[in-house]
Amino acid sequence: MRESRLWFWHILSAVAILFLLGLHMGIMHMGTVLEALGLGSTHPTATAEVFARSQHLFFMITYIALLGTALFHGLYGFRSILCELSLSQSLQKAIGRLCTVAGFALFLYGTYVAVRVFQMKGV
């Protein structure tokens, strides 16, 4: 069953996102706690820190993993919502394909950015 498979990935990606986005949001918004624990800083969007993280292998990999799982989870959810609008069958199919193409395109773009920034030296 195709829909079953897509839904399982929706659930599994949710679990993955919980950890990956939890980490991301922790770094971005729990700066005061992390700083108190000596693990992070209160200025996570400062240019030096952003590039330092981007050039760390661990962060590059988790960024790409988060990008992929979040795109799948978000676009499947979006498709679910549009599926529930009594649209014509052909339009529903077109939406499904558009979500797939957009998802792959954004994933490729985001991965390209992550890899290129990772490779930038001396920034």
């Binding site: 069953m1 195709r2 829909e3 079953s4 897509l6 839904w7 679910s80 599926c83 529930e84 529903q92």
Partner: peptide, 12 residues
């Protein structure tokens, strides 16, 4: 299962 697990089945 055909209707139950279709695109407009339990997952909606």
């Amino acid at each position: 299962s055909e209707a139950l697990y279709s695109k407009h089945g339990v997952y909606r």
